[in-house]
Nucleic acid binder design. Sequence first.
DNA 1: GAACCAAGTCAACGATTGTTTACGTCACAT
DNA 2: ATGTGACGTAAACAATCGTTGACTTGGTTC
Lengths: 203, 203
Amino acid sequence: MLPAEDQPATTRRRDAAATRQLLLDAARRRFARNGYAATTVREIADQAGVNVALISRYFVSKEGLFEACLMGAADELDRVVQKDYSIDAVAASMARHLAGPSADWQAQQVLMLLRSSGDEQADRIRHAKLRFLAERMATAGGWYPGHPEEETLLLRAQVALAAALGLAILRTSAVLEPLASADQEALTEPLRAVMGALLTPQA
Amino acid sequence: MLPAEDQPATTRRRDAAATRQLLLDAARRRFARNGYAATTVREIADQAGVNVALISRYFVSKEGLFEACLMGAADELDRVVQKDYSIDAVAASMARHLAGPSADWQAQQVLMLLRSSGDEQADRIRHAKLRFLAERMATAGGWYPGHPEEETLLLRAQVALAAALGLAILRTSAVLEPLASADQEALTEPLRAVMGALLTPQA
DNA sequence: GAACCAAGTCAACGATTGTTTACGTCACAT
DNA sequence: ATGTGACGTAAACAATCGTTGACTTGGTTC
């Protein structure tokens, strides 16, 4: 239960920022995999090796902890699709975040976009980030505000985003093989096919 | 199912099969939209307009009710992808089930495939159905057991399935516009693009 | 060393969860 | 009409949930 405690005589315990981070990591893992309602604060605290009461102390409430996880994920996900990405670059980035090195950690951030606590503010953050990601992906396909086919391009980008999100779920929640254990390389090709088919500007 | 239909002020209550169905419908709606853990048996009973205790009577437990919903959905979903469907037919069927007439009801069945109660047997049913759907979709792309590129084709079909499932989530859980209110016609085109790109046999 | 305060612990709170038990009540066969 | 059994109701059960307040511990500062 206790995390690696290999600092013999120095710090490690009694460090507010460190335990806060332990709680965030444990909570994100649980929230991403099992959802908000199915996750108990005692589970989180145990996994973090920390007392339950510290959740209320550092994050006010379970919802506060969830929101903190979501905001952290939202910040991190800005890096998934850069402004100047090509369509292939979008596909490559998706594959890297879903199956690359440190994929567990990255996939958790992605899954947070699909978890809801019922809290309005958290839902707003989630919704805004999904919308942002879709627009970034649409941009790779020539979309811009005021484009003559603005809505169609955005719709197609949202379908592409849906594919990536559904992929994250099928790999973790359900464990569909061979998808679940497909590595980054194996995932890049079909993702490139999807992104190309959906985002490539029509003739 | 058999007895007198709509007596205005008299019967209607005291019909075991009917209330059982009321519970199933209410439960499927809640489970599909909010997940298993976030749904309480009292919510279900209230929405069905029946007493809470009847859940235990007719379905043994909350998990029993969930499993009944899932099995019903699994049976229904066999119709989504028929054996002899072409790639375009798969896309059309997906669009019809997600946005066609009676889409609410159909989409709920789809979402049940993504909801987990933690129960092993339910998870097996869910997993088997997902695998079945992916194989059916792969079949539309020329896949068959023993195919030289069997794993690759199946992987691509699973990505296609992920796209359809992700679409169901983004339309209901998150409510991303214009995707959420896109009708069947508007959804057919991008879905055809996805299915075509993923399932079409390579040169 | 004493004082002080943040960090962490412990036990309990009220509320809500799924489930059960004992009790009404309506339909139907005799 | 009258039991009789299935259908439905109401109240309560134990367990668990998130949260709180009083307490102890350990590090830092005079």
